[in-house]
Computed example of a mutant assay.
Amino acid sequence: ETLIRLVGGDTESEGRLEVYKFGKWGTVCDDSVTDKLAAVVCRSLGFPWNTSEVYGNAVYGEGSGPIWLDDVICEGSEISIDECQHQEWGTSNCYHRKDVSINCSPKDTVVQLIGGANKYEGWVEVYKFGKWKKLSTYGINRKFASVVCRSLGLPWTTSEVYGGAVYGQGSGPIWLDEVDCVGNETKIQDCIHRGWGSHNCDHSKDVSISCLSPNEVYGGALYGQGSGLIWLDDVKCEGTEARIQDCHHDTWGVHNCDHTEDASINCSPSRGMNIFNSIED
Rank of each mutant, 00 (worst) to 15 (best):
G8T: 02
G9T: 12
S13R: 12
R16V: 10
E18W: 06
D30L: 02
S44C: 04
G65M: 07
P66S: 10
W68Q: 01
L69M: 15
I73P: 15
I81S: 10
I81T: 01
Q87A: 02
T91W: 03
R97P: 07
K98A: 08
K107Q: 15
K107V: 02
D108M: 07
V110C: 01
V111I: 13
Q112D: 05
L113S: 11
A117D: 15
K119E: 04
K119T: 11
E121Y: 07
W123P: 03
G130M: 08
T137L: 11
Y138T: 05
R142F: 11
C149E: 09
T157H: 06
T158C: 04
S159I: 14
E160F: 13
G168N: 06
Q169M: 08
G170T: 11
W175G: 00
W175K: 15
D177N: 10
V179Y: 09
V182R: 09
T186L: 11
D190C: 02
I192Q: 02
I192A: 02
H193R: 13
W196F: 10
H203F: 06
S204F: 05
S208K: 00
I209T: 01
G219Y: 02
G220K: 09
S227E: 01
I230W: 11
C237G: 03
I244E: 14
T251I: 14
T251G: 05
G253H: 00
S264Y: 14
N266K: 04
I279F: 01
D281M: 05
